[in-house]
């Protein structure tokens, strides 16, 4: 039974791996880049779903955590010569750090830098979450937006670490299909497990009615905080992957447009559904790419954002739960006998 349940997801992972291998071998740099981009968006959307979709505590600070993760890991993996040239004011304990170890072909240093970035972001997220998760409704949204602004101001001003408004460049391009795919798998698995756990059920319960949930003894703060910190960890990971994929960036990248893009993926897919986030990310990345080509061909820049925003409004108005609502694509039932499937559908 358990084996049959695992068969569906295993097949999905296997097929994805096969697709990655084919894509990797094809040498199609453009399509590889698009898929890596998509995988990073999946990580961001699924983790935002944990933070906000499950709990209903809408955080607009996710991209702030991503930015911190990107800078933290990029500083750690930046070669020493570049570090001396670009970041001369770095404190001495950081100036000599270069995480470039590798085991065989595997850049372990990058993995460590990514984990440190995620960990650092979680450590920051904990007190921030402790303070902000007490708020609710739009106030938490605006307070976390305030966090995003604060991060941006700090990134612009902490010249010694970030080069301020100048581009942070020469980051080694470690991120490839496999790294992005692996982390996407991890985040999907972790968030899916959390959804199925007691914590996950508490998150969804207090989302509907906080007071009623509290009245029947459901914890509110702990699940919210857990969601916030774990979500931040993966946002930091996404930042690290992004930094080592794009190789040069500045604080302006990590701001409102990106925030809104991820929110669109989340809402279109369905707040509360892990598979919905994946569907949403795929749909918006594909649509965004198609629209970008239209923009390039017609020179009507701005068109893609308008179309995406209009689509977002239509989804919110007509189908607020998004494509999937809270439901999941029943991959685990793929190989169960037919009659059982029929039993379980309402």
């Amino acid at each position: 039974m358990a084996a049959r349940r695992a068969a569906g997801p295993a097949m999905a992972v296997g097929l994805s791996a096969l697709a990655f291998a084919l894509l990797d071998a094809s040498g199609q740099a453009f399509w590889q880049g698009l898929v890596i981009n998509l995988l990073i968006f999946i990580i961001l959307t699924v983790s935002l779903n944990l933070t906000s979709g499950f709990t209903g505590v809408f955080s607009l600070g996710q991209i702030g955590f991503m930015a911190l993760g990107a800078y933290a890991s990029a500083i750690l993996t930046l070669p020493l010569r570049e570090k001396a040239a670009f970041l001369p004011d770095l404190p001495s304990w950081l100036a000599g750090v270069h995480l470039d170890w590798s085991v065989g072909p595997l850049p372990v240093g990058f993995l460590v830098a990514t984990l440190i970035a995620g960990g650092l972001v979680s450590v920051i997220a904990w007190p921030v979450g402790r303070v902000l998760m007490r708020l609710s409704g739009h106030f938490v949204a605006v307070a976390t937006l305030g966090f995003l602004v604060i991060v941006r101001v700090i990134l612009f001003n902490a010249d010694g670490f970030t080069r301020g408004s100048r581009t942070f460049s020469n980051v080694t391009q470690y991120t490839n299909l496999w790294w992005a795919g692996l982390w996407a798998l991890v985040v999907v698995y972790v968030v899916w497990r959390i959804k199925r756990s007691t914590y996950g059920r508490e998150m969804l319960a207090q989302r509907e009615d906080r007071v009623a949930a509290q009245a029947i003894g459901i914890r509110v703060m702990e699940p919210r905080l857990l969601a916030f910190v774990v979500g931040a960890f993966f946002a930091g990971v996404a930042g690290s992957l992004y930094a080592h994929f794009i190789t040069s960036f500045s604080p302006t990248v990590f701001y409102f447009d990106l925030t809104f893009r991820v929110i669109t993926m989340l809402v279109v897919g369905g707040m509360g559904s892990v598979s919905g986030s994946i569907v949403g990310a795929v749909a918006i990345v594909a649509l965004g790419e198609a629209l970008r080509r239209v923009e390039d061909a017609t020179l009507l820049y701005g068109l893609s954002s308008i179309v995406l925003a209009a689509m977002f409004l239509v989804v919110i108005t007509v189908r607020r739960g998004g494509l999937l609502g809270e439901r999941e694509i029943p991959l685990d039932r793929l190989f169960l006998r037919r009659d059982r499937t029929a039993d379980q559908s309402p």
Binding site: F58, I263, L299, S305, A309
Partner: peptide, 29 residues
Amino acid sequence: IRGAPDVATLLSSFAVGQILQNGTLLTTR
């Protein structure tokens, strides 16, 4: 969407903002 949950209306206003900003951008172009 009047009467929808707080967050839904807030996010809608972000979408409206995106449309106005990019509409202006497009017009100036």
